[in-house]
């Protein structure tokens, strides 16, 4: 994978620490692998797609999601507690007037539980520095042109909270089932760099 960090100093430090903890009998490597695999297996953008589709068909769920996403997620069998700590999630809704875009300018904070591992470009200095100052141009680079009158709100996940965008339901999808709607959603749509 192009976006792993096997060669970075932090990866080397983690490996050394892991080795010491194993040597002292404080860590079972197989147990660690099982925990990581379980998290990685559950953390996929399909979770986010499912949340969006439910919000599109269920107004009560959508209202609850926008009000307090952490409390709303369990009703679709999800949570933000799959990692080391429970993270607060804000779901921000796109409307005809407002479009939301997510970034972490300081590092690469990202709602992994709902979106899976982040795309490489999300972690790139180019995206992180430019989307806060020139979001409209960055969206253009993704092939996504917003009407000039649409207000853009950038959310910098610079601290403890994570964000997910609730895209607008595409026109002409009234007849689709929830599963079919979920299949319309893309990972970039949940970050705000695509319409859906």
């Amino acid at each position: 994978m192009s976006d792993d960090h096997d060669d970075s100093p932090i990866a080397a430090r983690v490996r050394e620490l892991e080795a010491i903890l194993e040597e002292k009998g404080l860590l079972d490597a197989a147990e660690l692998d099982r925990a990581l695999e379980a998290f990685a297996h559950k953390a996929t953008p399909a979770n986010g797609f499912r949340v969006v589709a439910r919000a599109w068909v269920d107004d009560d769920f959508k209202a609850a999601l926008l009000e307090n996403a952490n409390e709303a997620l369990p009703s679709v069998g999800l949570s933000m507690g799959g990692g080391l700590q429970v993270q607060r999630l804000y779901v921000v809704e796109n409307t005809p007037q407002v479009h939301n875009v997510i970034v972490c300018t300081l590092c690469s904070c990202y709602p992994i539980a709902l979106l899976g591992p982040s795309p490489t470009w999300y972690k790139s200095p180019a995206y992180r520095s430019k989307v806060v100052s020139h979001p409209r141009e960055v969206l253009e680079q993704f092939g996504f042109t917003l009407p000039a009158e649409t207000e853009i709100r950038v959310w910098d996940a610079n601290a403890e909270t994570r964000y997910m965008v609730l895209p607008r339901r595409p026109a002409g999808t009234e007849q689709l089932s929830e599963d079919e709607l979920a299949a319309k959603v893309t990972r970039n749509g949940l970050i705000g760099t695509a319409p859906v």
């Binding site: 100052s133 979001p135 409209r136 853009i152 709100r153 950038v154 601290a159």
Partner: peptide, 19 residues
């Protein structure tokens, strides 16, 4: 929430941070 104008001297968007 900050206006882009306040942060960068230009732009019509906003940026929201946790502080």
């Amino acid at each position: 929430r900050f206006t882009a104008r306040e942060l960068f001297g230009q732009g019509d968007h906003s940026v929201t941070l946790s502080l």
